[in-house]
């Protein structure tokens, strides 16, 4: 059935309620909510959450925003915690300890800190073992929960509280890790990169594929943080659009090894359009720092070209 936003919203109630304590304008809740809407209404889900903004603000005792079952244990282990839940499900199903006609799906949410960095071992292990689960990274490009420290997902030159733009060192000096490619190196049945964009078709359809593809699947979703990125709170969707129109955050999926780029901007915008509204890149626009924008553009171009080649190569 083709995606119809109104039908999805009207017929699939939110499984991530109001009353959470995420910041005003946070990019993560719309992402999590739409991903959960991709579940069939009759299916139950167990959600595992890594410690982070999302966890501390959606399950602060005694209130939970999750209408499905939910477990948080620690920062680095959403994937291994959910491995155990999924293994229990398999075992109990096999033994007839759970009803035959009901299905439970397993979804983990982690920020980039909990996924790219401290949680990568547990994630890699869970994916390699083949648990039937979806791991969703909501990537806001730094440790936002602890106060905007750099992570391996932080873009080069970004000013964070542990990579401050100083007079000698102009922000983070390393390029962003490409986690989506690392996950693809696990040869998973489904890997995708998405964002909250336009009518959310891209995100919804990828979530649906990931949830209903058997085996371990991975979604990497850019989720802007107005506080950490330093853009006006109301600009969430404009920032997202700039991320994809500049090809900073390409929307693509890898289905059994085949790359499909889901959005190729008619006119690829210069990356400075994406950088300019964000305070974390402010120092890059000072006179004399033009080289920083050039270098950033080069990296974006290289990664985009590589992706185009991968698409061509894997679809021959």
């Amino acid at each position: 059935m083709p995606y119809n936003l109104k039908e999805v919203i009207a017929n699939k109630p939110s499984r991530f309620t109001s009353g959470h304590r995420m910041c005003a304008g946070c990019g993560a809740p719309p992402v999590a909510r739409m991903i959960l809407r991709a579940l069939k209404p009759e299916d139950h889900a167990v959600i595992a959450n890594a410690t982070g903004c999302m966890e501390v603000s959606t399950f602060m005792y005694p209130y939970t925003s999750w209408t499905d079952s939910y477990i948080h244990t620690a920062f680095e282990n959403a994937a291994s915690t959910l491995s155990g839940v999924e293994a229990a499900y398999k075992s109990m199903k096999k033994q007839g300890k759970l009803p035959d006609d009901k299905h439970t799906k397993f979804i983990a949410f982690g920020g980039d800190g909990g996924t790219y960095d401290i949680g990568i071992q547990a994630l890699s292990g869970a994916m390699e073992r083949g648990h039937d689960m979806v791991y969703v990274c909501y990537d806001n490009g730094a440790y936002m929960n602890t106060g905007i420290q750099r992570s391996s997902a932080t873009p080069k030159f970004a000013d964070t509280t542990t990579s401050p733009a100083g007079s000698v060192i102009p922000g983070k000096m390393q390029s962003r890790k490409d986690l989506t490619e690392i996950m693809e190196a696990h040869h998973l049945p489904y890997v995708a990169q998405s964002i909250a964009f336009a009518n959310f078709k891209d995100l919804y359809e990828k979530a649906e594929k990931a949830i209903y593809t058997e085996g371990p699947c991975f979604l990497n979703v850019l989720a802007p943080c107005p506080r950490g990125w330093g853009y006006p709170t109301d600009m969430l969707m404009q920032i997202n659009k700039l991320a994809v129109d500049t090809c900073y955050w390409p929307l693509y999926e890898i289905i059994d090894g085949k790359y499909v780029i889901n959005y190729k901007p008619a006119k690829k915008l210069p990356v400075e359009e994406f950088l300019r509204p964000q305070k974390r890149f402010k120092h890059m626009f000072k006179p004399g720092n033009e080289w920083m924008i050039e270098e950033f553009q080069k990296e974006v171009d290289k990664r985009w070209d590589d992706l185009l080649k991968l698409e061509e190569m894997t679809n021959k």
């Binding site: 167990v46 595992a48 477990i71 244990t73 620690a74 680095e76 282990n77 291994s80 915690t81 959910l82 491995s83 155990g84 839940v85 999924e86 293994a87 229990a88 499900y89 398999k90 075992s91 109990m92 096999k94 033994q95 300890k97 071992q121 547990a122 890699s124 292990g125 869970a126 390699e128 073992r129």
Partner: peptide
């Protein structure tokens, strides 16, 4: 045995998986 054996990649994950499994409603 009826057990699902999870050959985890570390002890941290061993206990994490046991926590998940026990919370799920099973014996771990």
């Amino acid at each position: 045995v009826d057990t699902e054996f999870v050959a985890v990649e570390s002890e941290h994950s061993a206990m994490s998986a046991c926590v998940g499994a026990e919370a799920a409603g099973s014996r771990a």
